[in-house]
């Protein structure tokens, strides 16, 4: 492998019900276009875009569900090693919002526990058809300690911001981790606190 021309590489994974605009968000961001029609994306695995944030090159690898969300059959391996998850719903579709707890359960089960999750309400260009109030979604996101953003892939509202914010957050976490990880490998028998346990607040 040659020397890579980036400072950070992050894997970002999109999830959410079918038809909420996941693919559109990715293509708007990576290609600057809004794909017409609702064709399934055949042969597209993930997209890559390199952005520059405060002088550092950040390569974002953005993965789409490949249609497996349609019958709730996403492979667990899809969540593996994701640095960030974009959980998307459609603000004009109450049902896609109601399914969020189910998605969160999947995340909890399969994604690593340091994953950064952001909730995205898409399709704000269809404001007149809105079914999910912004306040409600914000409250929900807060209760689950997720970031929240409303976007329009069609009008390109907040799409750039979504990915750049995520990238900033990931860089921040990566730097933080570097500091924390200096003595992260406990020696056998030391009985050091195990990180995942601390998040379960047993005491």
């Amino acid at each position: 492998m040659s020397m890579e021309d980036y400072d950070y590489l992050f894997k970002i994974v999109l999830i959410g019900n079918a038809g909420v605009g996941k693919t559109c968000l990715v293509r708007r961001f990576t290609q600057g276009l809004f794909p017409p029609g609702q064709g399934a994306t055949i042969g597209v695995d993930f997209m890559i875009k390199t952005v520059e944030i405060r002088g550092e090159k950040v390569k974002l690898q953005i993965w789409d569900t490949a249609g497996q969300e349609r019958f709730r059959s996403i492979t667990q391996s899809y969540y593996r090693s994701a640095n960030a998850l974009i959980l998307t719903y459609d603000i004009t579709c109450e049902d896609s919002f109601r399914c969020l707890p189910e998605w969160l359960r999947e995340i909890e089960q399969y994604a690593n526990n340091q994953v950064v999750t952001i909730l995205v309400g898409n399709k704000i260009d269809l404001a007149e058809k809105r079914e999910v109030l912004r306040q409600k979604a914000e409250d929900f996101a807060e209760s689950q300690s997720m970031l929240y953003l409303e976007t329009s892939a069609k009008e390109s509202d907040n799409v750039e911001k979504l990915f750049l914010d995520l990238a900033c957050e990931l860089i921040r976490e990566a730097k933080q981790n570097k500091l924390d990880n200096t003595d992260s490998a406990p020696m056998p028998g030391e009985g050091k606190a195990i990180s995942y346990l601390s998040c379960c607040s047993l005491n």
Binding site: I42, G43, G67, F71, S73, T75, S77, Y78
Partner: peptide
């Protein structure tokens, strides 16, 4: 699962 994803990427329909 990796092979399943490859199939899905190329249009395979998945249902558990």
């Amino acid at each position: 699962q990796c092979f399943c994803r490859m199939s899905a990427v190329f249009g395979g329909v998945y249902c558990l």
